[in-house]
Structure formats: structure tokens, C-alpha cells
């Protein structure tokens, strides 16, 4: 009970700020300060969201599928790459700079190429999601592996552990917090990546729907889709948070312990 209260009060300012922005938005539209064809009122957006809900859901099913497949493949590839790079220093030296360079290429610039190469189906979308989600997870894992205390590895070796045992008992669990922070970023990138690639061609998906309503100048519907994407991304991030809690129960225990000791010292 006591633990819940601070977490609610700490979220109040953000909720208040959001409410204030919505209010200003509403007033700007109501008073006619900005014409409705440029900025639809939040009421119109909400109405569009409700009316279009079945259509949006249909399209988001496709987008979510692309994001999910892409994210899974991205995670798998990132895990393999990071683990191999950590094992072989030469590969690390060869690949790390290349990975940084690939991150400077804007997603929007590769998307048309992927459509050219792979057509209008799901393949180019999934590929783009893989490209965008791969990097944060790889870097997260690599950092995690590297930050393992040298003494911890010495201790494992002194106990007679082999390379594989050191990896499963120490390196991988120690890298989990970094892995999840990478995954949290990647999960939100995944949806955005899928939508961007849908803009450039396709038959279904939130990105395709967005371009359609844009061409019809239905800005209220466009705003509805944008807000829907935000909600999906937030839900995905919450899901990753939940997953990290299940995978790393000790982190919660440590947090509670810190709170308790802070309480004891009266901070």
C-alpha cells in the first residue's frame, strides 16, 4: 500500500502536463485560432478513433505482425552477433565500427530500396524492423558482457568452470539488464520501423492506412492513427518491462532493499 502511493504521486506531474496539453489543444481548436483542416480538435480525433476502430485494428494486426517477426529475428541476430563478437576480439574490432556506420543511415532512405528488392509484401517491412531493432540490442548485450567483473570470471575459472559455464552462469545473466534496456528501445522502434516501411508501399498496415487518409485530407483520422501507434508502442514497452521483471526477479528485490535502507537512514 505504502509502496504504491509514491509511484502514483510520481506519475501525477506527467499526467497533469498531458492533460494541460490536451486542454490547450482543445481550446486552440474551439476558439478557431487554428483552422480545423490544419489541426483537428481532440474531440474530432477521438470520434475518428472510435468510428474507425475496426479498420485501425485490422491494419494494426498486419503492422504488429511485421513488428513482432522483425523484433524476434532482430533479437535472435543481435544475440548471436553480440555473443560471437564478445568471444572473438578480431570480429569485434572488424564489425563494431561498421555497425556504428549503419546506424547513421536513415531508415527512411533504406526503405524504398528494400521495397525495390523485395516487393510490396511483408518481407521488406520485416527486414527494416530487423535493421532498426538489431543495433540497440546488440550494443546493450555487448556492453553487458564487457562490464562483467574480471574477478567474477577469475572466481568461476578457479572453481573449474569452462567458457560455456562462465557464459551461462555469469556473463549472460549480468548482461540481462542491458539486454532489456536495448529491447525496450527496440520494441518502440519496431512499430515505427514497420509503419515507415508501409508508407512506401504495401496493401495493408497502419502505414498504408495513414497514407490513404492523408491523401483524403482526413487529418482527424491521421491523428487517430498516430495516437494509436503511440498507444501500441507504450503497451509494447510495458510488456517488455513486465518481461524484464519476470526474467530478473532480483532487480525488484534490490530496489525494495534500497528503498528500505533509504527509509532507515531517513532520506
Amino acid at each position: 500500500m505504502n509502496g504504491k502511493l509514491p509511484s502514483i504521486t510520481s506519475k501525477l506531474p506527467a499526467a497533469a502536463a498531458l492533460a494541460l496539453i490536451c486542454l490547450v489543444w482543445f481550446l486552440v481548436c474551439e476558439t478557431g485560432a487554428v483552422p480545423a483542416y490544419m489541426l483537428p480538435s481532440p474531440v474530432d480525433v477521438a470520434r475518428a478513433m472510435v468510428n474507425d476502430f475496426p479498420t485501425i485494428m485490422d491494419h494494426s494486426r498486419v503492422t504488429l505482425q511485421e513488428a513482432f517477426y522483425g523484433l524476434c529475428i532482430g533479437v535472435g541476430l543481435a544475440f548471436i552477433t553480440a555473443t560471437v563478437m564478445d568471444r572473438f576480439l578480431l570480429l569485434d574490432r572488424a564489425l563494431y565500427p561498421l555497425m556504428i556506420i549503419t546506424q547513421t543511415i536513415p531508415t527512411i532512405a533504406i526503405a524504398p530500396l528494400l521495397v525495390l528488392w523485395m516487393g510490396f509484401g511483408m518481407a521488406p517491412k520485416i527486414t527494416l524492423v530487423v535493421i532498426t531493432t538489431f543495433f540497440p540490442i546488440t550494443v546493450g548485450l555487448l556492453d553487458g558482457y564487457r562490464n562483467v567483473d574480471r574477478d567474477a570470471i577469475d572466481l568461476m575459472r578457479a572453481m573449474g568452470a569452462g567458457r560455456m559455464q562462465i557464459f551461462t552462469h555469469v556473463k549472460f545473466p549480468s548482461a540481462l539488464p542491458n539486454f532489456f534496456s536495448g529491447l525496450r528501445i527496440s520494441a518502440s522502434y519496431a512499430v515505427v520501423g514497420a509503419v515507415i516501411s508501409e508508407w512506401l508501399g504495401g496493401f495493408e498496415g497502419l502505414g498504408v492506412y495513414m497514407t490513404r487518409v492523408k491523401k483524403a485530407y482526413a487529418f482527424d483520422k491521421m491523428f487517430a492513427v498516430i495516437i494509436f501507434i503511440v498507444i501500441i508502442s507504450l503497451l509494447l514497452m510495458a510488456f517488455v518491462n513486465l518481461l524484464s521483471r519476470v526474467a530478473m526477479p532480483w532487480v525488484q528485490v534490490e530496489k525494495r532493499q534500497d528503498l528500505a535502507s533509504a527509509g532507515e537512514t531517513g532520506k
Binding site: 574477478d151 572453481m159 573449474g160
Partner: peptide, 30 residues
Amino acid sequence: PGRVSYMLQKDMLFSHKKIIDNVSLPLVIR
């Protein structure tokens, strides 16, 4: 390695393992 037991300066208990799993780790390794 693995024959003479060695305890380092820091306790080096792994934060992600419960005490019983930390303590029995040498047996698991064997």
C-alpha cells in the same frame, strides 16, 4: 584451476542468484 579453492577479496556473490544457488555453484560446475 578447479582443484584448489580460492576466495577473492570481494565476496563475489552473484546478485542474480539466490544464496543457495550461489553457494552450490561449485557443485553445479562440477
